[in-house]
Design a binder for these strands. Structure first.
Lengths: 246, 246
DNA sequence: AAAAGGGCGATTGTCGACAATCGCCTTTCT
DNA sequence: AGAAAGGCGATTGTCGACAATCGCCCTTTT
């Protein structure tokens, strides 16, 4: 008999569903960056207990999507220029390691999966839809990470990817000219990994991220300058109810 | 008047105290690796509510120190050979980036802090106490990480360090011979950073960790072989109360 | 004797209520 | 009018109780 992998069905607690829903809301921008959220507000919207929502919020805080000021409130992160620098330097280190690991353990099966992700990127680039191109781009990077067979690396990459998604959303769309170069940037990386060239795969992966970080940083800097004058002062607590007039 | 940094005293919720205490118990080995823990047991020992303890457990699970099986129980991680590989490959990537960053932004002030950490390691090596040498070792690495001025990098390194501490504890003591070589291993890294040699600082940091990982992996493999026969089967739930005899 | 099925207790999951804390707003004083 | 001090409401922090779920153990069956 085949040694079937029994999926081991476990009932997912509502906690994780709430966490996933909230994470998606933040990453997708349904809840804006810098916005304040309260436990009661969310628990009412989701029809859940405050304790359950609170657990979800704590999880997302650990993922770096929220900050909590004790006895005061939760706030969605808003990424600064320094955050962009942190994200892309860290991502370059993570992807460099992933590229090296996959290249050093390359197999026909891995090449097949790699080609599948690369082919999808090629097709989407020909199609021209920027959102689908972006997804295929993430998909290729994600494939390389998975092939590294490194749980902690994958977990760390997931956190980075979430915040990068918030970034590229706030820059609204990609630079149209950059779309054309996308294939030229990724093909060498895939080729180096396929060839088992550890050093080259690592170096190209690292360099690719540093370049992307620079481009995104420049674009965001321009966007933020014009938005600097909006809402200069933010209150930490909400406005209080006015006293009743006589 | 001097622009004094007001520490902004905020009352720390008991949650974080409980989290810190539990984390310390796990990392220090007071709660053994692989051990099952229950919310009630801990809440009674700490004289706290289950909800508070539960929050702390969730935090530590996010840090990778605990695993939670829904409706079943919490278990302290026990690190396998693959985990050792993950930890040291990831640590090498993180420290490589840190080394590069510090080297590329080196200043007299940073050199001073670097020298302070290195001097401490030198003194402790002359003293000969393995525990204090280990702490000075961690201290030097920690100093480099802090000098990188990279929040996410520091956070990731903290998680890795915790698990590495669990590892070296289970290998009981360091290899006495390795203590002598410790200075020879760290001095070149510090020198490269001081000289602002980005490439060399990164390469030496990376290599140092990979070597350390190999050594620890070999030592643990020997230890685990003799411990393989102990407790071959572990129950997921505790023993149930026996039915009363007539 | 070996295998299949259900009972049952141990543990986590969820909820609502109350307490602690913070900071905005009003008031008071100068 | 400006500055300082206190009230007060909004929000998080903590707690205990009840519900949901899982898996060990015993029973039953073959």
């Amino acid at each position: 008999m085949a040694n079937l992998k029994i999926p081991r069905v476990i009932k997912m607690p509502i906690e994780v569903q709430a966490t996933d829903a909230l994470r998606d809301a933040i990453v997708s921008g349904s809840i804006a960056a810098g916005e304040r959220v309260t436990e009661i507000q969310i628990s009412q919207q989701m029809n859940l207990s405050r304790a359950t929502v609170r657990t979800a919020l704590h999880q997302l805080a650990k993922e770096g999507l929220l900050t909590l000021v004790p006895y005061t409130g939760w706030t969605v992160i808003s990424l600064s220029a320094h955050d962009v620098w942190e994200l892309y330097t860290l991502r370059s280190a993570v992807e460099r390691l992933a590229g090296r690991l996959v290249a050093s353990t390359i197999t026909p099966a891995k090449i097949e999966r790699l080609d599948g992700a690369m082919d999808r990127l090629v097709r989407e680039c020909e199609r021209g839809d920027v959102d689908r191109i972006a997804e295929a781009d993430f998909g290729l990077h994600h494939t390389i990470i998975k092939l590294a067979d490194h749980g902690r690396l994958a977990a760390q990459y997931a956190l980075i990817e979430q915040q990068v998604r918030m970034l590229i959303r706030s820059s609204d769309a990609f630079d149209p000219e950059a779309q054309i170069l996308k294939l030229d940037q990724h093909r060498p990386i895939v080729d180096a990994i396929r060839a088992g060239d550890v050093e080259l795969a690592g170096q190209l992966s690292e360099q690719h991220n540093l370049v992307e970080g620079e481009k995104l940083s420049a674009r965001l800097k321009a966007l933020q300058e014009q938005a600097l004058l909006e809402e200069p002062t933010a209150t930490l607590r909400p406005a209080r109810k006015r006293a009743a007039l006589g």
